[in-house]
Design a binder for these strands. Sequence first.
DNA 1: TATGAATGAGCATTCATTCAT
DNA 2: TATGAATGAATGCTCATTCAT
Lengths: 216, 216, 216, 216
Amino acid sequence: MDDSDGSGPGTTRRERRIAARREQILQAAAKVFTEKGFHGATTKDIAEAADVAEGTIYNYFENKDALLLALINSLAMLNQREQIMEAGLQQDMSRFFVEHFLDRLQIVSQDMDALAAILPELLARPELREPYFASVVTPAIAMLERHAQARIAHGEIRPLDVPLAVRAFVGMFLGLWMLVALGDPFVQEAWAKPDQVVEKLFDLIMDGIRAKGEES
Amino acid sequence: MDDSDGSGPGTTRRERRIAARREQILQAAAKVFTEKGFHGATTKDIAEAADVAEGTIYNYFENKDALLLALINSLAMLNQREQIMEAGLQQDMSRFFVEHFLDRLQIVSQDMDALAAILPELLARPELREPYFASVVTPAIAMLERHAQARIAHGEIRPLDVPLAVRAFVGMFLGLWMLVALGDPFVQEAWAKPDQVVEKLFDLIMDGIRAKGEES
Amino acid sequence: MDDSDGSGPGTTRRERRIAARREQILQAAAKVFTEKGFHGATTKDIAEAADVAEGTIYNYFENKDALLLALINSLAMLNQREQIMEAGLQQDMSRFFVEHFLDRLQIVSQDMDALAAILPELLARPELREPYFASVVTPAIAMLERHAQARIAHGEIRPLDVPLAVRAFVGMFLGLWMLVALGDPFVQEAWAKPDQVVEKLFDLIMDGIRAKGEES
Amino acid sequence: MDDSDGSGPGTTRRERRIAARREQILQAAAKVFTEKGFHGATTKDIAEAADVAEGTIYNYFENKDALLLALINSLAMLNQREQIMEAGLQQDMSRFFVEHFLDRLQIVSQDMDALAAILPELLARPELREPYFASVVTPAIAMLERHAQARIAHGEIRPLDVPLAVRAFVGMFLGLWMLVALGDPFVQEAWAKPDQVVEKLFDLIMDGIRAKGEES
DNA sequence: TATGAATGAGCATTCATTCAT
DNA sequence: TATGAATGAATGCTCATTCAT
């Protein structure tokens, strides 16, 4: 009804205020979930962290579960980086891997704690798993499969079971992330100065662990 | 109070009865945690599954958390298979990897659901992470590191950053397991007929993904 | 603030606007109370039904209870039909009873649902009962008592305990109404084609149920 | 498992303890509902009135609604007096009416307050009305209809529309009860010394209000 | 006046834990 | 030891009411 300032296309001041409040609450929820886990976090905690009354939460989210879902979806948005990866086909593999991966690491690191708060619920509750898997994991894997196929066609990667290899690759990073989440000090440190680590991992993935003299 | 039979060294009938009861409750807890997750499981559920009164649980375990800890520890016992692995150094790598891995898969598959029930709590609660990490993850990684070092010394594996490589390896399996837990149908199917998959993974790990003509 | 037109004696345009708004909200409240009961109705419901913001309600009514009281009072206004009844003394009893009763039935039927929504609160909350009883029930009964006295004086009704008889009479209709409210299908149907029913009831009231041959 | 005392057929001590506790809570609920109405009564109130912890209520009743339903059902048991009424056919009408009615009044008076607490919910909530109507009202009316038919056959009551007459009769008492509940001082007093009132009502019902000289 | 977002007291219900039997 | 009824603190959520715009 009131969009008299030119602040944005299709967003009134009211809509922006509402979106901001929603975000404020969502961030608070992410913070508290991260600190105490989903079950350990009370709506009171979240309200306090958001500097809002408890009831206000319910003006923006149906219930506590809806907060979790919204958080999952916001993490899912990381996926919109897909384009970069398609574009990455131009680069040679080493450079692409290193650059893209470092880039990705930056992003994931920030959300790692939030993910660690969400993952438990994801594992424990099938009804949350399906939408998450469909909207986050499936597209990411599909994109990597296309990427790998292109590299194979281009002769950079040898022909192999692409779905499995991609999942092994994705799994490796998921697993390394999990080691961090579980508190492994080695990976935690490595995560801190990632350039060398990423290079070494690239090496492992490209050439495997076999000694030179040996034959497969 | 009663050790009049010679039934075992250091275990009276009473002690065995107690141990059996404890195990009965623990198995029930594992079952219920698996089905409903730690938070979804009530002590009432567990008592019913164990065919025991609610109060009886507290004669064997301090509280609900203690059940979780005991379960974590019992999963940690998988580690006692370590000897096999040390012995495995005699075998050539391919055979060792395949055999050991298939073996392991059998065990892990059985406990996978229980782990999926426990992991969320592990991730959410730092005070549980530390003992778990120390008693399960650290020894497993250390053992693999020793194993890898031996293989390097033996010239089967090329010299590399062993701690990182081992963690990448462990992470890969953790990550693949997580994809199963998250519901990825491809890995779930692959998990079902593991022989081929294991072989392909071995291949990937040994030789990497690089096309033959290329040079590192 | 603005009474510049001569629109009515003592009512400015503003006052009329205010009264209209009040009525609009009150009707909405009646509707929602009827549908969901007093406790089931939220101020949000009422605001939506009145096509008004929630806060606006509080510009016209102190609180939710005040809405109920206003509704009670508006039902009490049915009482202003009293004059008709006094006038009814001219008619012979049968005609008066039938005509007046049918008339009344029309009115009551419309408000029956609203009454069913209000009555529960009336029964449950003493502080509401008193004003209602004083403003609605007492005058109605008093008027009927005068009417009955007149009929006795006129020789149409035999001398009897007027207060009791009137209450038995009033009670009978209240009770029949309650049977409808409780869902009795027989009375509900009878309510639908009232002419015959009213005649039969008149008969019962006038002559009782005793068989002709019998003596009191 | 333990019925070693001869205290009752098929009731163990445990069962009796449980039944007693249930009754204790139910009585407390009746009391609190009566005082504050269903919505005004909190589970905390009920627990305090029953001298029990809040949680204990839920060991005996599913939820607050179940308390209400149990109360409704316990009032429905008044109906088991039916036999008396069938037997009452032996007595002459006047005596039967007076005796039975006085008897009934004693009972109803005691439960009147509880009924006043329940009725509002009955009126407001259709899902409660149906079972109540089916289990309490329908049988009572059916029984009175049979009774009336028998009296007609016996020549004590003139032929009339039995269903309507019975409902008018039932309605009259319901209505009088409601006037009491609404606080009418006259009926309240009359209720206190019922002998005369009952006789006068009998008179009204039997002979109607028509003056002797008049003709229908 | 009208609005509707913010508020927070209040409530039904759950469930781990205790303890008398 | 085993039992399971009793406990009551803790929690998610509702909704009448307020008040800044």
